[in-house]
Design a protein around this nucleic acid. Structure first.
Length: 289
DNA sequence: CGCATTTGACCAGCGC
DNA sequence: GCGCTGGTCAAATGCG
C-alpha cells in the first residue's frame, strides 16, 4: 500500500510522484477529501511518507531490517568521511514525510532548529535541493527542501526521521505553521514515543489552519492537503470524510499534541500561521490496503 | 568566538 | 564494470 511512500523513497522527483498520486488516485482510495478540488501544480499539498522502517515498503530491495540504534551507533563510531554503510544491508531509511507548500520561502520555520549541511543540484530541476539536519544533539531528523521545477512557487519539504526531543519554543510559542506535519509525523510515525496518530495531529491541524485562513482571506485557490500516513498509525475512523475533519475540535488537537505545548490560541494567533501557510493545502488520507 | 552556511569532494546505490 | 545521481562530509567562509 501507500505507493506514495515508495515514491518518496525514490531519488527522483518527489514532486512528480506527489502530483501523480494526487492527480490519479486509486479508486478505492480512502481520502479525507477536504475539498474535492482537482490537484493542480498550484496547489500546496502535504504528503506523509513512510516507512520502510515500519516494513511498509513491499519492495524487498528496499525493505530494511536494521535497527535504527545499530546504525546510529555505527555512524557515531566513525566520524571520518567513510561512512560505515553495512555492506549487506542498505542504509535504513527513516520514516519520511513530504509536503508541498506554496511559499516564496525555501526554508520554512517549523519550530525546530535546523542546520544546513548540504546542497545539491537536482536532476531535471533548475533549483538546488538543500539538506538540513536537526541541530539538537542525538536527534537525527533530517529534511530536504527543494523547489518544484514545474512550479517554482512550490516548496517541497521532506522530513526524515523522528524528533527525540521537544520542539524548541519560538518566541511566539511553538510555531504552528509547518510544525504540525513535522512534529506529529516525525514524533509518531515509525514508533514515536507518544503513540499519537500522525493523522490525528497532522491532518486536522493543518486543515484547521486552512480553515482559519479561508475564513480570513478567502483564498481563491482550493487547498489540497495531501497526507499519507503509515497503516499502523493511520486511523480509519476520524478522517474518512471531510466533514469529520472540518469539524475536528480544536481543543482535542491541542491536547493531543505531545510537543510544543501551546495555549489554545490557534484560533486567535494565526499570524505566523498565515505566514507559514500562505496558500493552499491539499489534504489526502492514505489509501488503505 | 561560536555558530550557521557554502561548496567542492567523496561515497554508495542503482540502472544500464 | 561503469557512469549517473543522491546524499553526506568537512574545510572554508560569513555573520552576529
Amino acid at each position: 500500500m501507500l505507493n506514495s511512500f515508495q515514491d518518496l523513497s525514490k531519488p527522483t522527483s518527489i514532486f512528480d510522484d506527489l502530483l501523480q498520486s494526487i492527480t490519479a488516485p486509486p479508486p478505492q482510495q480512502r481520502i479525507a477529501e477536504v475539498i474535492d478540488a482537482p490537484a493542480t501544480p498550484n496547489s500546496s499539498s502535504i504528503s506523509s511518507s513512510s516507512t520502510e522502517a515500519a516494513g511498509v515498503n513491499d519492495d524487498p530491495k528496499k525493505a530494511e531490517t536494521v535497527e535504527e540504534e545499530e546504525e546510529e551507533d555505527q555512524d557515531k563510531a566513525n566520524d571520518g568521511r567513510l561512512k560505515p554503510k553495512k555492506k549487506n544491508q542498505k542504509r535504513q531509511r527513516e520514516p519520511r514525510f513530504a509536503f508541498m507548500t506554496k511559499s516564496e520561502i525555501d526554508h520554512l520555520d517549523d519550530g525546530y532548529r535546523w542546520r544546513k549541511y548540504g546542497q545539491k543540484a537536482v536532476k531535471n530541476s533548475p533549483f538546488p535541493r538543500s539538506y538540513y539536519r536537526c541541530t539538537s544533539t542525538s536527534c537525527g531528523v533530517k529534511k530536504r527542501v527543494e523547489r518544484s521545477s514545474e512550479d517554482p512557487s512550490i516548496v517541497v519539504t521532506t522530513y526524515e526521521g523522528t524528533h527525540v526531543h521537544p520542539c524548541p519554543m519560538t518566541p511566539r510559542g511553538c510555531s504552528f505553521g509547518i510544525l504540525p506535519p513535522e512534529a506529529a509525523t516525525l514524533g509518531n510515525i515509525g514508533g514515536g514515543a507518544t503513540g499519537v496518530s500522525a493523522s490525528h495531529l497532522v491532518v486536522p491541524q493543518i486543515f484547521h489552519l486552512y480553515q482559519q485562513q479561508q475564513h480570513h482571506q478567502q483564498q481563491q485557490i482550493q487547498p489540497y492537503f495531501h497526507n499519507l500516513t503509515p497503516p499502523t498509525l493511520a486511523p480509519t475512523t476520524n478522517f474518512n470524510t471531510s466533514s469529520t475533519i472540518s469539524s475536528f475540535p480544536l481543543p482535542t488537537l491541542i491536547r493531543e499534541r505531545p510537543f510544543c505545548p501551546s495555549p489554545p490560541s490557534l484560533a486567535r494567533d494565526h499570524g505566523l500561521l498565515q505566514d507559514m501557510l500562505p496558500s493552499q493545502i491539499l489534504l489526502k488520507e492514505p489509501k488503505e490496503e
